[in-house]
């Protein structure tokens, strides 16, 4: 379980908090969606729980252990997987190599298991021929599916996604949302999706609205 305690943050020396004393908990088998207007601080919040940045005050615990104690690099390597709006794949590699690289870097259970990765990619509609192509030759929807498979196959139990459908059409968006739901419901991961799209937000098991410096769970 990922727990946020008394998280407070403000930019620079302004002293005006972006949000104050945020307390949230995220459990496995659920899709959490965080929705908010642009500039509300939802991506900044994602950076904190992904271990990419540190808040001005407050603590984040994973299964009772402070993530600062785990160490940011170690936390990112073993505990959390991130899916970005821009897919953020390694452009000089194939889809297969992108996933294998992630498995190797994170020292995951299935590292070096090509067939396992190919099967997983096939499961999201990426055939072996496409899997071995350079990712730049794939469509946006295919690239995002590769990014999700990368997050799914690593051993991390928490998957955080930042506007994962931002660049996709409705059909691809629906497919991606389904994949995230499968990650939570079938693979028992904690999925946290940050989005400004209310339609996507409604697909979450738990919806969190960020407005006026407050996180409201519904």
């Amino acid at each position: 379980m990922l727990t946020v305690k008394n998280l407070t943050h403000w930019y620079g020396k302004s002293g005006k908090p972006l949000y104050e004393n945020v307390n949230l908990s995220f459990t496995a088998d659920k899709v959490y969606t965080i929705v908010g207007a642009s500039g509300s601080g939802k991506t900044t919040f994602l950076a904190f729980i992904a271990g990419l940045d540190k808040p001005q005050a407050g603590e984040i615990f994973l299964d009772g252990e402070n993530i600062e104690k785990i160490g940011a690099t170690n936390y990112r390597k073993h505990k959390v997987a991130i899916v970005f709006q821009q897919y953020n794949l390694l452009m000089y590699m194939s889809a297969l190599d992108n996933v294998l690289t992630a498995l190797a870097v994170t020292a995951s259970q299935h590292k070096n298991d090509k067939q396992y990765v190919l099967d997983a990619l096939k499961g999201v509609g990426i055939e072996e021929a496409d899997a071995k192509k350079n990712v730049q030759q794939l469509s946006g929807g295919q690239q995002q599916r590769v990014a999700i498979i990368r997050a799914m196959l690593v051993d991390a139990n928490i998957v955080i996604a930042d506007e994962p459908t931002g660049n996709l059409d409705d059909e691809n968006s629906a497919m991606i949302v389904k994949l995230f739901q499968d990650l939570a419901h079938k693979h028992h991961k904690t999925v946290i999706i940050v989005t400004h799209d209310t339609k996507i937000a409604q697909k979450g098991d738990v919806q969190i609205k960020l407005a006026e410096r407050q996180f409201m769970v519904s």
Partner: peptide, 11 residues
């Protein structure tokens, strides 16, 4: 960006 992706993976 490549370096960022690798860092986000925990490299």
């Amino acid at each position: 960006r490549e370096i960022g992706v690798l860092v986000s993976l925990g490299e």
